[in-house]
C-alpha cells in the first residue's frame, strides 16, 4: 500500500466517522423546542412542578374524572386520547383509547397522538418506566387526584390556567363552593350528639373507609361520624361484631362497578344489606336508613352532588328544601349541556 492510498483511506475514514457522528447526534439528541409559545408552571398532586407550553391544543386524559373537568372547561374537543373508562360526556367516547387506565397507557399510541399535555391519576406514578419514557419524549405529565375533594378546585384552576379557560374555571369553582358553603353553614353548629354514626362499606363485605380516606372527609363535611374514623389501617375489613356493636344510624354502601347504571343492581345491593345476617340489630337497618350510591357522585366536579346526598341522608330535616338529584341534573346540564341519565343512588 503506497502513501496516497493510505492518505485516501485515512480521509475516507475521518469523513465516515464524522457523518456517523452527525447521524447519531441527529438521532439521539432531541431537536430544540421549535414552538415559540410561553411556558407556564403548575404544581400537581405529587408536588411536581410542570412546565406546560401554551397553547395546549392536544390533550390526552387518562382518568374519567379529569376528562369530565376538561369537558366542563369546554375543552372536550381538544382531547385526542383517553382511557377506556372516560365515556362521559358521550362526545369523548369516540376519541382514541390509549390505555385501560392511568397505570399502563400504550406509549406508542399515546405518542402518535402528539399531545401537548398528558393528564393522569396517581396510578401512573407507580409506573416509573412509562414516566421516564414520557419525560425523555419531552411531554409534560400532570398527575392529579380528581376524587380527592380538597384537590378538585385546585385541579380546575390549574387546568383553566393551562387551557386558557380561567374564567370558566372560576365559574365552576364558585358553583362547587356555593354548595360546600351551604352544607357547611347548616351542619357546622351541630353538637356531636346530633351527628349520626355512619358505617360506610365498599368493594368487599365489611370493608370500610378509615381515617385518612376521602370518603371519611365527605362524611365529616356532611355532618356525620364515621364508625371507623379513628382506625389507621387503610381500607380494612372490619370485624362484623364491631360494626353491630357500634350500632350505626346510617349505612352507606358504594355500589360494585359491575352493577352501576341499572336499578336492579341498586335494589339488590340495598336488599342484601337490609337482610344481611346480624345487621338486623342495627338502627340503620331497623329505621331503613341504608343508602347505596354510585361513586361518580362524590368524584371530581360532581363532588357537591354527593355531599348534598350524604348531608340529606344524615340530616333529612336540615336539608328538606334540597333535592340532590335536581342539583345533579342541573350540574350536568350547566357544564356538559346534556341531560342526566341513569340511576345514581338508592333509595
Amino acid at each position: 500500500m503506497n502513501k496516497t492510498t493510505a492518505a485516501l483511506a485515512a480521509i475516507i475514514l475521518v469523513v465516515a466517522v464524522l457523518v456517523a457522528s452527525y447521524g447519531v447526534y441527529r438521532l439521539y439528541v432531541p431537536s430544540e423546542n421549535e414552538s415559540q409559545g410561553e411556558p407556564i408552571t403548575i404544581v400537581d398532586a405529587t408536588g411536581a412542578q410542570i412546565n406546560v407550553t401554551l397553547p395546549v391544543e392536544r390533550i390526552v386524559s387518562l382518568n374519567p374524572g379529569l376528562t369530565e373537568i376538561i369537558c366542563a372547561l369546554d375543552c372536550g374537543d381538544r382531547i385526542v386520547g383517553r382511557d377506556a373508562n372516560s365515556v362521559f360526556p358521550s362526545s369523548v367516547s369516540e376519541k382514541t383509547v390509549v390505555g385501560q387506565n392511568s397505570y399502563d397507557p400504550n406509549l406508542e399510541v399515546l405518542l402518535e397522538m402528539e399531545p401537548d399535555v398528558i393528564v393522569a391519576d396517581s396510578m401512573l406514578s407507580y409506573n416509573t418506566e412509562a414516566l421516564e419514557k414520557l419525560a425523555t419524549a419531552g411531554l409534560p405529565v400532570v398527575i392529579e387526584e380528581p376524587s380527592n375533594v380538597s384537590r378538585v378546585k385546585i385541579v380546575t384552576s390549574n387546568f383553566g390556567l393551562i387551557f386558557g379557560k380561567e374564567e370558566k374555571a372560576a365559574e365552576i369553582n364558585d358553583y362547587i363552593s356555593s354548595y360546600e358553603n351551604l352544607v357547611n353553614e347548616r351542619v357546622k353548629d351541630l353538637a356531636s350528639s346530633e351527628k349520626p354514626l355512619v358505617y360506610i362499606e365498599w368493594y368487599q363485605t365489611w370493608q370500610t373507609f378509615t381515617e385518612d380516606s376521602i370518603a371519611n372527609e365527605i362524611i365529616v363535611n356532611a355532618g356525620g361520624v364515621n364508625i371507623a374514623g379513628e382506625i389507621t389501617t387503610t381500607a380494612p375489613v372490619l370485624s362484623p361484631e364491631y360494626v353491630v356493636e357500634k350500632n350505626p344510624d346510617i349505612i352507606v354502601r358504594m355500589i360494585s362497578g359491575d352493577l352501576i347504571g341499572n336499578m336492579t343492581g341498586f335494589e339488590a345491593t340495598h336488599s342484601e344489606l337490609m337482610n344481611r345476617a346480624g345487621l338486623g340489630e342495627v338502627t340503620a337497618v331497623k329505621e331503613g336508613k341504608v343508602y347505596v350510591y354510585d361513586p361518580i357522585v362524590v368524584e371530581g366536579i360532581r363532588y357537591p352532588v354527593g355531599l348534598l346526598y350524604w348531608a340529606k341522608w344524615f340530616h333529612p330535616s336540615l336539608f328538606e328544601d334540597i333535592d340532590p338529584a335536581a342539583v345533579h341534573a342541573e350540574l350536568i346540564q350547566q357544564f356538559f349541556g346534556v341531560t342526566l341519565e341513569g340511576v345514581h343512588t338508592y333509595p
Binding site: 368493594y203 368487599q204 363485605t205 359491575d258 352493577l259 343492581g265 339488590a268 345491593t269 336488599s271 344481611r276
Partner: peptide, 10 residues
C-alpha cells in the same frame, strides 16, 4: 363476568 358478589347476592 359481573355477578355482584361484592354486595353478597349472587
Amino acid at each position: 363476568l359481573g355477578v355482584g358478589v361484592l354486595s353478597g347476592f349472587g
